[in-house]
């Protein structure tokens, strides 16, 4: 499997007089082709800094990085990459159409191919009707959309998005996440950073947690959510004796007229089931409760 992004001990240290700030420290990461990678961390963790180093907008203090096997110091590393910065600002005086054309030319397109691409992307992000309007007059959501279009101009294989949903209304957010999903389905690789965990939960395959410049944990979302967790068991016909027996082994989470729900730890599972069977309860559902990302995140940071 091709490794789209590889970094080796990427470090960025800012020195201002006597003060020394470590923005990113020893970041080693590999992004595989076709995956959606969510890069999460609180504000100031170093996410944007890392991204900018990948794009050679910033230069690392030490360490190396490659994109599609090419050292990021060479402009060729950015050939198949599309980028949308956070809080993007573009040339106000251009119209949407002109701007996309401009981006396309920078990406190496020309002639009729360029025109076709501009038209199709304008439609794809839903800006086609506003294409002749100057960017100065666009709303934030529209800027975001034209920004996404701009990133997709050269039909890139890697799309890097820095905080793509911050400040967007639910519609804008949906559009962005749908776009990420559709990109994955077309075999593209997406690397995006955010502090909104919900976004990552919805679309990411793998996750990296960045905190104070250090990469604390990289994991596959599914796997991690399913590790070490509890079972959720719904029971009917629960009598008093069942309750007494169950309470020692599990946690009552829900109770209504007919049913009760217990949260049972893996270790206690079989004992619990025995108890239920013994006391005459009937199991309605038995599911593994998935951990959510927030828990994982806070736990990781707490350790870090």
């Amino acid at each position: 499997m091709e490794r789209v992004i590889v970094t080796e001990s990427l470090t960025k240290i800012y020195k201002s007089g006597k003060r020394r700030t470590e923005a990113v420290r020893d970041l080693s990461l590999e992004i595989k082709r076709g995956e959606v990678f969510g890069f999460i961390g609180p504000n100031g963790a170093g996410k944007s800094t890392t991204i900018k180093m990948l794009l050679s907008i910033l230069y690392p203090t030490s360490g190396k990085a490659w994109v599609f096997g090419v050292d990021v110091r060479s402009p060729d590393a950015r050939k198949r990459v599309g980028y949308l910065p956070e809080n993007p600002r573009f040339y106000d005086y251009l119209s949407g159409e002109e701007f996309l054309r401009f981006a396309g030319m920078l990406a190496g397109l020309s002639g009729s191919r360029l025109e076709k691409k501009v038209e199709s992307l304008l439609k794809y992000v839903g800006i086609y009707d506003a294409r002749k309007r100057k960017l100065r007059k666009y709303s934030k959501g529209m800027i975001q959309r034209i920004g996404l279009a701009q990133a997709l101009m050269g039909d890139p294989d890697l799309i890097i998005l820095d905080e793509p949903t911050s400040g967007l209304d639910p519609l804008g957010r949906k559009l962005t996440l749908d776009l990420i999903r559709s990109l994955r389905s077309r075999g593209k690789t997406v690397f995006f950073s955010t502090h909104i965990l919900k976004d990552v939960e919805e679309v990411a395959d793998r996750v990296g947690i960045l905190f104070k410049g250090r990469l604390l944990k990289v994991f596959s979302l599914d796997e991690e959510r399913q590790r070490e967790n509890d079972y959720q068991i719904e029971i009917e016909n629960a009598g008093i004796d069942l309750f007494i027996a169950a309470e020692k082994l599990a946690e009552l989470t829900k109770k209504d007229e007919k049913r009760v729900t217990f949260l049972v730890r893996e270790d206690n599972l079989f004992e619990f089931l025995e108890a239920v069977r013994g006391k005459g309860g009937r199991i309605i559902t038995l599911t593994r409760k998935k951990r959510n990302l927030e828990e994982i995140f806070l736990e990781t940071i707490g350790e870090g």
């Binding site: 794009l55 050679s56 907008i57 402009p75 060729d76 590393a77 950015r78 050939k79 990459v81 980028y83 910065p85 993007p88 573009f90 981006a103 920078l106 990406a107 190496g108 701009q150």
Partner: peptide, 8 residues
């Protein structure tokens, strides 16, 4: 930024 992010 978007200009620098291109292979230019």
């Amino acid at each position: 930024q978007i200009i620098l992010a291109r292979p230019v």
